[in-house]
Design a protein around this nucleic acid. Structure first.
Length: 634
RNA sequence: GCUACUGUAGCUCAGCCGGUAGAGCAGCUGAUUCGUAAUCAGCAGGUCAGCAGUUCAAGUCUGCUCAGUAGCUCCA
């Protein structure tokens, strides 16, 4: 007998070969049929995995990651089965569960379009109704090749297994058999609420040199109400889309005349300038100096920096007096030249030079996305030149700076360490040393991070800071890159204590990342209702009728005198109309003024934050608002 | 760049089987002077993304180009 320790700690005995599902069903009616997968000793397993040794078993449901995986994976098989029934000529690639649902890739001609989805969805619902048992079985490589003789993509996948001499795991549900490691549900019936969300293209193996397949995405839940909740969440997310809000709040514009080149409107410019003012304050405190370098520089410089060899495809070029020039895609080479304009002593190090540099990169047209992905953007860059001994301290200093800035906005973030890519400059030893330095700094700060192998910049490894936005997407913003290559290429030097010349080490780093992307994320994070210090208009004055205009003008001058951004709505409109409009513009405060206020020299405050509302003296309102703005309260 | 889709007034959208463009909001003018999310009336707004083609006739059909959307690839 095998001893099985259950989730609650109790121990039961089962015959060898009993499956996790049988354990589950012995624990209570319905469990085995529910949308669930099993875990044995904390490892996700298929429910029918036989128990062979003493173990701890827990049963997971749709609510946890393993349960979802099994549920969505089975959903993708149902999708494939439906496609097999309706499009027998389709070739099957792969169909995994993903973060929010599942997909399956097919090779069909013509490619699937959105119109095809309804029919496939209907067929899927039939398969769910049929409650087909899902059966797992194993074959050898030759048998598998026979089963998939008409499926070139499956055959390609099988070749790896065949070489390794492995037995091949297959799943069958009714007339459909797929190559799959599982886990899956026991049968197709729990997939009650499903929806196919889109039909798109996707490269085979994610490689843009290979064939483009037709991918169908879907979501599925055990209950209709859960599906509806998910769809509602998507609708809510749409409402805070920065492209929509950017237009409505007149923050920025993206016009056909400049694809990927954003225009900042007056309101957006206020927001941007507030961010930059704060940025300069923080950097001054952290002992950075500020420089500015040209946008256009001679091609010779880009050859020297390595950008011409490694980044040419993304660079805009032109010619001046017969000489080739390029628009800068990065600020570093300019920064190197600034360093070289003078001799440097070890006494000056670490030398921190910041630059709000406008860079241009030719991104693929299909990659552009509002302010999040553009072709011209301002990096809040800085280059730190230092001795090797100072590296760890400087990295930690930048980490703390990034944390301080992100915290101000209430952002969560996670950190990734990206290591040496295939296309890189410099020796393996330098890369090793640089990577270790980044790791060491993170360990000393006791910050968690994940490793992203081979994703570093061509000149050095990096720590990437990913902000988590309002709907759970992550965006790469801050980055810290340690670089031994540029100082070498540009022959940078400093004079050491010993009077000899030494090579400084260098860090590239950004905090916001790009001002444009950061603004995009801020818009979605706050759904356009910015904290008062960032709001383009902080206070709207709403006189009830013309008789109160003079008082409104008077209050306006008082507020302006202390630096509050205020507008008076003196249009010939009803108060309700003015309030509605100010509300839609997401202005933090509305001051309503009628006979009563004029007489008492007060204002009736309608505030976005409840606690700031009520009737107040102008002085009290001003003092509280100035405090809120200067403290940059959320 | 690739796959699929979309493009009509500043914005949101209608426009059937091809017969020569329509609404609401915003804007302008006038009336109205009002207590916490839309006062009423009138006026003005469009080379139907662009360029070709089919047709007696194209917003509508076809092709190409441009731009956008969802993904893929790439990335701050």
């Amino acid at each position: 007998m095998i001893n099985v320790t259950l989730k609650d700690g109790s121990v039961r005995q089962y015959e060898p070969g009993t499956s996790v599902a049988q354990v589950a069903s012995s624990l209570g009616a319905g469990l085995a049929k529910a949308a669930c997968a099993g875990r044995v000793d904390g490892v996700a397993v298929d429910l029918r995995t036989p128990l062979e040794v003493d173990c701890a078993v827990e049963i997971c449901t749709f609510g946890d990651p393993d349960g979802r995986h099994a549920f969505w994976h089975t959903s993708s098989h149902i999708l494939a089965q439906a496609v097999l029934r309706l499009y027998p000529q389709a070739k099957f690639a792969i169909g995994p569960a993903v973060e929010n649902g599942f997909y399956y890739d097919f090779d069909v001609t013509p490619a699937f379009t959105a119109e095809d989805l309804a029919g496939i969805e209907e067929e899927m619902k039939k398969i769910v109704k049929e409650a087909l048992p899902i059966e797992r079985f194993f074959v050898n490589a030759a048998e598998a090749m026979e089963i998939f003789k008409d499926q070139p993509y499956k055959q390609e996948l099988l070749q790896k297994h065949a070489a390794a001499g492995q037995r091949i795991s297959l799943y069958r549900q009714g007339d459909f058999v797929d190559l799959c490691a599982g886990p899956h549900l026991m049968d197709t019936s729990p997939v009650r609420a499903l929806k196919l969300t889109s039909a798109t293209g996707a490269y085979w193996h994610g490689d843009s040199n290979l064939a483009m397949l037709s991918r169908i995405y879907g979501v599925a839940y055990p209950k209709q109400s859960e599906l509806e909740a998910y769809l509602t969440m998507l609708e809510e997310a749409k409402k805070r889309d920065h492209r929509k809000l950017g237009r409505e709040l007149q923050l920025f514009a993206l016009l056909e005349e400049g694809p990927g080149f954003p225009f900042f409107l007056p309101n957006g410019m206020i927001l941007k300038n507030e961010l930059l003012t704060y940025w300069r304050e923080v950097h001054k405190k952290a002992e950075y100096s500020e420089i500015s370098t040209p946008i256009l520089l001679n091609q010779q410089l880009w050859l020297r920096s390595g950008h011409w060899d490694h980044y040419k495809n993304n660079m805009y070029t032109t010619e001046i007096d017969g000489e080739p020039f390029a628009v800068k895609p990065m600020n570093c080479p300019g920064g190197m030249l600034v360093y070289k304009t003078q001799m440097h002593s070890y006494r000056e190090l670490p030398l921190r030079m910041a630059e709000l540099g406008l860079v241009h990169r030719h991104e693929l047209s299909g990659a552009l996305h509002g302010l999040m992905r553009v072709r011209a953007f301002t990096q809040d860059d800085a280059h730190i030149f230092m001795t090797r001994e100072q590296i760890i301290d400087e990295i930690m200093g930048v980490c703390r700076l990034i944390d301080e800035v992100y915290s101000l906005f209430g952002f969560q973030y996670n950190v990734e360490l990206s290591t040496m890519p295939g296309d890189h400059m410099g020796s393996d030893e330098d890369w090793e040393m640089a990577t270790e330095a980044l790791k060491k700094a993170m360990e000393m700060l006791d910050r968690p991070y994940t490793v992203n192998e081979g994703d570093g910049a061509f000149y050095g490894p990096k720590l990437d800071f990913h902000l988590v936005d309002a709907i759970g997407r992550t965006w790469q913003c801050g980055t810290i890159q340690l670089d031994f290559q540029m100082p070498e290429r540009f022959d940078l030097e400093y004079t050491g204590e010993d009077g000899a010349k030494h090579r400084p080490a260098m860090i590239h780093r950004v905090v916001y990342g790009s001002i444009e992307r950061f603004i995009g994320i801020l818009i979605e994070h706050f759904a356009g209702a910015f904290p008062t210090w960032l709001a383009p208009v902080q206070v709207m004055l709403v006189p009830i009728s013309e008789a109160h205009h003079a008082y409104a003008e008077e209050v306006k001058q008082q507020l302006e005198a202390v630096g509050i951004r205020v507008e008076a709505d003196l249009r010939n409109e009803k108060m309700n109309y003015k309030i509605r409009e100010a509300q839609l513009r997401k202005i933090p405060y509305m001051l309503v003024m009628g006979d009563k206020e004029v007489l008492e020299k007060t204002v009736a405050v309608r505030a976005r934050k409840e606690e700031r509302g009520g009737v107040k003296s102008v002085e009290d309102f001003m003092a509280a608002t100035v405090e809120e703005i200067t403290s940059r309260a959320l």
